[in-house]
Computed example of a mutant assay.
Amino acid sequence: MHRSERVSMYGWIWRHLPGNTWVRAGISLVLVLATVFVLFQYVFPWAEPLLPFGDVTVDEGGAGR
Rank of each mutant, 00 (worst) to 15 (best):
F53S: 07
V32Q: 04
T35Y: 04
E5D: 11
F44Y: 12
P45R: 08
A25W: 09
R65D: 02
G54C: 09
A34T: 03
W12E: 08
F40M: 09
M9S: 09
R3A: 08
G64L: 09
D59E: 12
L33M: 12
V7W: 02
V43P: 00
L33I: 00
L17Y: 03
A47H: 05
G26T: 07
L33G: 10
A25E: 03
M9D: 05
H16M: 11
P52A: 15
W22E: 12
E48W: 04
S4F: 10
D59Q: 11
T57K: 11
G11I: 07
L51I: 05
M1S: 06
E60R: 03
F44K: 06
S4C: 08
V32M: 10
F53Q: 05
L51K: 12
G64T: 08
Q41W: 08
Y42P: 00
G26M: 06
L31V: 05
V38F: 12
R65F: 00
L31N: 02
E60G: 15
G61K: 06
E48F: 09
R65M: 02
T21R: 14
V56L: 10
E60F: 07
W22V: 05
Y10P: 07
M9Q: 13
G62C: 08
G61E: 10
I13H: 08
D59A: 14
A25L: 13
W12T: 15
A47G: 07
Q41P: 00
W46G: 10
R6T: 08
P18R: 03
Q41K: 04
V23T: 15
V23I: 14
S4H: 15
A47P: 00
G61T: 11
V36T: 04
L33E: 12
G11K: 03
G19M: 03
M1P: 01
P18A: 04
W46H: 09
V23F: 01
R6D: 13
V32S: 02
V36R: 11
T35A: 10
G19F: 02
V56D: 13
A63S: 13
V58S: 11
T35S: 10
W12L: 11
R3P: 02
F44S: 10
V36W: 02
E60L: 13
I13C: 07
A34L: 02
W12F: 10
P52S: 15
S28Y: 03
M9K: 08
P52Q: 14
I13F: 00
L33N: 06
H16R: 15
R3V: 14
F40D: 14
V58D: 13
S8T: 15
S8N: 04
Y10Q: 13
R3S: 07
Y10R: 07
R3N: 09
Q41C: 11
L50E: 09
R15T: 03
E48A: 14
G62K: 13
L29I: 06
R15P: 00
V43H: 06
G11L: 06
V7A: 05
V56K: 11
E5W: 09
I27Y: 03
I13E: 05
S8D: 06
L33T: 01
V56M: 03
R6Q: 15
S8Q: 05
F40S: 12
H2Q: 12
Y10H: 07
I27W: 03
S28A: 13
Y42M: 14
M1D: 01
M1V: 12
L31K: 06
E5I: 04
F37Y: 10
Q41N: 15
L17V: 01
A63H: 06
R24L: 04
L33S: 09
P49F: 00
A63Y: 03
G61H: 08
M9C: 08
D55I: 04
G62P: 04
